[in-house]
Design a protein around this nucleic acid. Structure first.
Lengths: 124, 124
DNA sequence: CTTGACCTTGACGTCAATGTAAGGGTTTAG
DNA sequence: CTAAACCCTTACATTGACGTCAAGGTCAAG
């Protein structure tokens, strides 16, 4: 599929899709006329990219992670070597971010007089 | 206290503290020589600012919220008028952000072969 | 009186993911 | 032939919360 369709089906702008390619997150083939040609699986990949980026990972980190994710939800743990502690680090960042968000939400809730729901700890 | 001490005690750079003032988040008095003079409570305020900013709120939103937060964890619900639905909106943003972070964390976990802990829903 | 730590304002730089615009090919349909 | 809808690359603009540097006052200690 070409970039327009991929953009429509993922809700991601063409600009971003080209940017992802520049950052080596996507590597579409080219049609004879130079147009980018994406395969079906790219739709899923793009969604994953969005999730990871919105989680605060940089494109570099995502670029390292993506090749380890095969097919749908398949795990490919051991195959990627010392990448793993990088992942653990990102995981800690995310947990910290979640804690921060919960703290902020609590502040907002206290302003509205909502009771502070204290049952969802960081969940490690 | 002057800006240097506040910076040390909060871990926030002097640059940021001045920026907060420019954005009307802080309004220190001035000493005769022009130096900024912060009172003790500002330490707590700055910490709250950090939490709210890191939660993705803009300085404008924080500026609206701060005057409603008195003392330690005091609630001042009704006094701030139509601000409340703005807060609800921010709250939804935060919930969505948390969900996104959890999704990202799940991806990371699946890479390490960790089981997906599915017990902490958005928690509304 | 001078050094050094502290403070001031002002202004430009940064970073990351995108927007946007310019200038130009290609292909389909009328 | 031509309009319309695609696609291409290049490159500059944007946003927000800062970093950083410049040029300069203030003040306590030696």
């Amino acid at each position: 599929m070409r970039i327009g369709e991929l953009s429509r089906r993922t809700g991601v702008s063409q600009r971003s899709l080209r940017y992802y390619e520049e950052q080596r997150l996507l590597t579409p083939t080219r049609l004879p006329n130079g147009y980018r040609d994406y395969d079906e699986r790219t739709v899923t990949t793009v969604q994953r990219i969005q999730i990871l980026l919105s989680a605060g990972l940089g494109t570099a980190a995502v670029a390292e992670i993506l090749p380890c994710v095969v097919d749908d939800t398949v795990v490919l743990a051991g195959s990627c070597p010392e990448l793993i502690d990088g992942l653990a680090q990102e995981r800690r960042r995310i947990d910290a971010a979640i804690d921060g968000l919960i703290a902020a939400r609590d502040i907002l809730d206290s302003l509205v007089g909502r009771p502070l729901h204290r049952q969802d700890a960081p969940a490690r």
